[in-house]
């Protein structure tokens, strides 16, 4: 009787553990700029950083990102939504890897491999907008399966020149 109670207790604790969300990570925290992100892929968290936070005011900036692939990425597509006050105001999507033309190093990686990207990111728009907003990014592969997913919370009050 006692052991079954213990088992129930443990299972409840584990269940709570499963249902918790991934923690929010800080990318930048400066006077005029704060960027946080949280993984929205229920399977895993991932690592992300920006080399120099002030560079986000420019068209291109360097990032580093790492995750363990749970699906192969023979093809890889990214879709980003700019969300202000809960409403999607801008959507941008791009093909990162296409079959027969792997322009990026990590294209063609298989399930289980470690993906590490270090390099420039060019925004689809001229510069990131000012104000408080959320950027939701989702990477999907050839089967339409989510490879990675993240919500970035941005508080940007940088001065643009």
């Amino acid at each position: 009787m006692k052991t079954s109670n213990v088992l129930i207790l443990i299972s409840v604790l584990l269940f709570i553990n499963v249902s918790t969300e991934w923690p929010t990570h800080t990318v930048c925290k400066e006077d005029n700029l704060e960027i946080y992100y949280k993984s929205c892929d229920p399977q895993q968290d991932f690592a992300f950083s920006i080399d120099r936070c002030s560079d986000v005011a420019t068209h291109t900036f360097n990032i580093r990102a790492a995750l363990v692939l749970r699906h192969s990425i023979k093809e890889l597509y990214v879709k980003t939504d700019l969300i202000i006050n809960g409403k999607t105001v801008l959507t941008y999507s791009e093909t990162l890897c296409e079959p027969g033309h792997s322009k990026l190093i990590f294209c063609g990686k298989q399930k289980g491999e470690h993906l590490y990207y270090e390099g420039p990111v060019t925004l689809g728009i001229q510069e990131i907008p000012q104000g408080d907003y959320t950027v939701s990014a989702k990477l999907t592969n050839e089967d339409g399966v989510t490879v990675a997913c993240a919500d970035f919370t941005v508080k940007n009050y940088l001065e643009y020149y």
Binding site: V18, Q43, D45, D51, A66, V68, R70
Partner: peptide, 10 residues
């Protein structure tokens, strides 16, 4: 400078 946090799959 760069802090990489790798959280293993839950």
């Amino acid at each position: 400078m760069v802090l990489l946090v790798l959280v293993p799959p839950q």
